[in-house]
Nucleic acid binder design. Structure first.
Lengths: 361, 361
DNA sequence: CTGAAAGCGCTTACAG
DNA sequence: CTGAAAGCGCTTACAG
């Protein structure tokens, strides 16, 4: 109980060597006789000694921590189911490396930049994982100035040198549009995310491209902030169009769920009167009725790869960009051929009378 | 650029004092002449010096970090919108205290306990915030053994001495039941959370008590793991009852949303054929159709108070328990008087024909 | 009120 | 292959 924690000197004494040698051994440096090495390891094991992170941090000017700072407007703060899974992925590699994750959640840009600066200047983290990339993201300049390594989720713009881990959601959006076109839709709307954000912009561009490819009207696009509320509002505007879409592609699942709510509120049958697709494959998207056709990615794997990439970058001063398997179309119940194309909707018919595909027990 | 970071000696030299004095000043210790004190502060300011956390950590055996470890089964990992807001609350007090949050997300109990132990033994955190309390929670014994402070969210069982910050959700559940009883419901079901968890158990007990109070049948209760999938399954079983409930009280919002999906899939009109209530007041619960009647709490405030309590506990060795304002009933669209009481449901009628209360633009 | 010095627990040239 | 010692940047008795 009261026994003080062993230190490196205790181990050295027990093994009959100097502190330096113990340090060499635990840091896997070459040039230690195998038997000496083993003796030291045994001593450490018996004493239950592990090098103190604080002491190592002071000597090495390294914190053995990685930083993640998330900026969310207050009301959006719980909107994104991406992070818990992503963080679980980060964690799975950090834990085995004896590293730790320092997480910060802030609500405005000023606090965000201040947080990066403080964490870096105080050497509380050895590097950052950058999510929610913006176009002309000010963080890159700051981090370069601070001289701290980072890895970006998604491809930042020109002139940015940090390694990036990206997942091609272009093909997911294209797949969704092809799916809808294949079903016979000719008026397809898009509730886009925040155009200031890289993934918001890219999904929208992918949509535009796929629609142009299909030779369809590409004007049914409304930009939002990625929030459920924004998705609901955009859906209303799209449906208020005198010649409304028969299908809407949403840039994320929460907006699609909210859009579904709006459609149902108006008495539209989904998918008969309006097909809806989400993006991300969040848990809940499979439990609303009808279950949402969506595009799935693997945030846990994304976290793992991001952590590994950042650690490699920190260790070697360089790391290759990584391209994850592209997001995949998951067809469920919320998409079907359009009931009609003239934009005038028939009165709703109860779900029970609809012969839905899903026969749940 | 290349200028090395200033240290305490630079400041001391500039102010013409010893390192010790500088330390006294930045730590607000008494016994330093006011003008000396000011001179030192000025020097530090001009040099842009802040004491190094690593160095302080080594001297003080303190990490200036708080730990939060979240255990979630892989498939539940994105289910809980509580954490981002809660963490934002923690952050708001940690930042101003120069503290940092170390977050760990693990998927099983073994990894969880290992994480607490490692974080504590390596002095990577000064204390923990304990969420998702279990009955007979093994963490308390471990943390006591490790000698590290903690604060619990919710009231742990007997014999546990850590301070706790709790929010009375009993009244929220009671309020929901009273609301439903007031509407004329006599068969009210409950999709409960995990009975092994304190808040799951307590919400269920609150439900039982409120039902008994109303003199109703209390057998329509099914326990789940708090997941959307669990909520869907429980809803099916409840509705399969030969004499099904006309209202279902869910222990959280994701389950309620999933339950809504199940009801709609069966052609039930919500709320006419089945009233539904959620719990937590998550963003999305307001955007499904019909918008869910739910019970709201304030996770951001919860985070703030938890952080303050833990810091006080660490600083003073003791801290008072805190009781937050109770969760409040938020009546929206998913509850109404029961259409009929015999358990035989009429065929669904489209939402558009229903004269819903909410006239969205 | 102030200074000199040891100590926190490591790591790492530098000698042997 | 191994040991002695300085250094990382603070804090804190202990003397004055």
């Amino acid at each position: 109980m009261g026994a003080r924690k062993p230190n490196i000197s205790d181990v050295a004494r027990k093994a009959g060597v100097s502190n330096g040698l113990v340090s060499f051994v635990v840091n896997n440096r070459p040039g230690v006789a195998p038997e000496t090495r083993q003796r030291i390891l045994d001593a450490a094991g018996e004493l239950g000694w592990r090098p103190s992170p604080s002491a190592r941090s002071l000597s090495l000017k390294t914190s053995f921590a990685l930083g993640l700072v998330i900026r969310r407007k207050e009301d959006l703060i719980s909107a994104d189911p991406f992070f818990p899974a992503f963080i679980a992925g980060l964690e799975s590699v950090l834990a085995s490396e004896g590293r730790v994750l320092v997480l910060s959640v802030v609500s405005d840009v000023a606090a965000e930049l201040r947080t990066y600066r403080t964490l870096a200047e105080d050497s509380r983290v050895d590097g950052f994982i950058l999510t929610d990339l913006q176009h002309n993201d000010t963080r890159f300049k700051l981090l370069e100035e601070l001289g701290v390594p980072a890895v970006a989720l998604g491809r930042p713009g020109e002139g940015v040198t940090v390694p990036c881990v990206q997942l091609d959601d272009t093909r997911g959006i294209a797949g969704v549009v092809e799916h809808l076109v294949g079903l016979g839709h000719t008026r397809i709307g898009h509730v886009a995310g925040d155009p200031a954000m890289v993934h918001g912009g890219r999904r929208r561009e992918s949509f535009d491209a796929a629609i142009a490819e299909a030779g369809l009207d590409g004007t049914l696009v409304i930009e939002t902030d990625f929030s459920a509320g924004g998705g609901a509002e955009a859906t209303r505007r799209l449906l208020d169009n005198p010649h409304p879409p028969t299908a809407i592609v949403y840039a994320n699942d929460p907006m699609a769920v909210a859009g579904l709510g709006v459609a149902q509120r108006r008495g539209l049958r989904v998918p008969d009167d309006l097909s809806i697709t989400g993006f991300d494959g969040t848990d809940i998207s499979g439990y609303v009725f009808p279950a949402l056709t969506t595009v799935t990615s693997d945030p846990v794997e994304w976290g793992r790869v991001a952590a590994r990439t950042l650690l490699a970058y920190i260790a070697n001063g360089k790391a290759d960009d990584v391209e994850l398997p592209p997001a995949a179309l998951l067809i469920r119940e919320s998409t079907s051929p359009p009931a009609r194309h003239d934009g005038a909707f028939p009165a709703g018919v109860p779900a029970s009378a609809r012969g839905t595909a899903a026969a749940h027990k």
